[in-house]
Simulated assay, not measured.
Amino acid sequence: MAPPLFMTPGHLLDKFIKDFLQPNKDFLDQLHRAVDDICTFLKEDCFRHSTTKPGSHAPSVPQGGSAAKGTTLKTGSDADLVVFPSTLQSYTSQRNERDKVVQEIRRQLEAWQQKTQFEVTFEMSKWKAPRVLSFSLKSKNVNESVDFDVLPAFNALGQLHSGSTPGPQVYAGLIDLYRSSDLPGGEFSTCFTELQRNFIVSRPTKLKNLIRLMKHWYKQCERKLKSKGSLPPKYALELLTVYAWERGSGSESFDTAEGFRTVLDLVTKYQQLCIFWNVNYNFEDETMRMFLLAQIQKTRPVILDPADPTGDVGGGDRWCWHLLAKEARQWLASLCMRDGAGNPVQLWNVPVRVI
């Protein structure tokens, strides 16, 4: 059993992450082998006898979520496997036809799973959601697991080369649809799973460990507050952690307690937050520029998904940031915020908005 994080001194946080949050290496290796097999099936065999063919230009089944980003926790982590069927040729067709595609994937995957041997336990979800197929991979030796979602999507990125930046035309149709409908922002973020993954996966290991710590803290808050209101998405906290590190440290070897304190401090200032990145889209294209200017003028907090400009995971007053901020203020008085000598750890100097 992990000791309470609240009572863990700041100088022991790295040990806490290593001992209680990082997954077992053998399980991770088994997990990756199983996921490779499942992805090969989804890409090559799942639609073999179907009118729904995988996209001819889809070189892989992109993986997202914590398992792909390298921020997995021992338990309760998630991962996404995105499939690009040829029938989904637009955002609209993704919205209208994905239920039918999910049903077909479920039939094929269940049949294949029953005749395939895995090093891990493969459990299909009994809850049948129309828009997503869920299953879990669990270790046979240790109490660790990862929950997966298989998501059919329109291949908006097409044949974008690895490491290259999408042109503004990639987002043009998405912005038009968003402006002309009542769809929530981020509705089609699955189309940009590779960009979301790449934004995190290239970061230093220690930053990924800080993200693990923030996710562990978030889960504790979620258990305590779930009956009081809807908390902002965990992804918002992940992006806030990256932003704090970029602006406050940038080093591959930083003090974890300082990073923890800085992110919690930013949570308490949620009403001032306006954060975005120019890694996949920027202000150069006129249509995108006008759209981004409108996005960053929304009610704070604004935290734009670096892969999808319609996705504001800050959400203004959509979620109960005040509940998370109240918890953060209490945690700022915890032992985590003190070093080995009992002195308060330093706070990084991080602006609450992109300048």
Rank of each mutant, 00 (worst) to 15 (best):
R338P: 04
G314H: 00
V313M: 04
A325C: 08
Q346G: 13
T310R: 02
P351D: 05
D312S: 08
D312H: 02
A341Y: 11
A307H: 05
Q330R: 12
G316C: 05
K326A: 14
R338K: 15
P309Q: 05
P344Q: 07
L323F: 07
A307F: 04
S334V: 11
D308L: 07
L335G: 06
G316M: 05
M337I: 09
V352S: 09
A328P: 10
C336A: 15
Q330F: 13
M337D: 05
A341F: 12
A328Q: 15
P351T: 10
D312G: 01
G342K: 07
A328I: 14
Q330K: 13
Q346Y: 12
G316A: 04
L332W: 12
A325V: 06
W321F: 13
A325P: 03
R338E: 14
Q346V: 13
M337E: 09
R329Q: 15
G342V: 04
G315M: 03
P344G: 06
S334W: 11
L324V: 06
C336I: 11
A307K: 03
R338F: 15
E327T: 13
P344Y: 07
W348G: 05
S334Q: 06
V313W: 01
P309A: 02
V313E: 01
L335Y: 09
A307E: 03
K326G: 11
C320G: 03
E327D: 12
S334A: 14
Q346W: 09
A325S: 10
P351S: 08
V313N: 02
R318V: 00
V352T: 15
L324A: 12
V313Y: 04
S334Y: 11
R338L: 15
D308V: 08
A333S: 14
D317F: 00
A341K: 15
T310M: 05
D339W: 11
C336E: 10
L324I: 08
L332T: 12
D312A: 04
Q330C: 13
A325G: 08
L323E: 02
C320L: 10
M337Y: 05
H322K: 14
W331P: 03
W331I: 13
P344E: 06
T310P: 06
G311I: 00
S334L: 13
V313H: 02
P351L: 11
D312K: 02
R318D: 00
A333P: 00
L347M: 07
A307L: 09
T310S: 04
R338A: 10
P309N: 04
W348M: 09
G311H: 12
G311F: 05
C336V: 09
E327A: 11
Q346N: 14
Q330W: 13
L323T: 03
V352I: 08
G316F: 00
N343A: 14
W319Q: 06
A341V: 09
R353A: 12
P309R: 02
T310I: 05
L347C: 07
A341H: 14
P351C: 09
Q330T: 14
D317C: 02
P351H: 10
Q330A: 15
P344I: 13
D308K: 03
G342A: 10
W319I: 01
P344S: 06
N349D: 15
W321S: 03
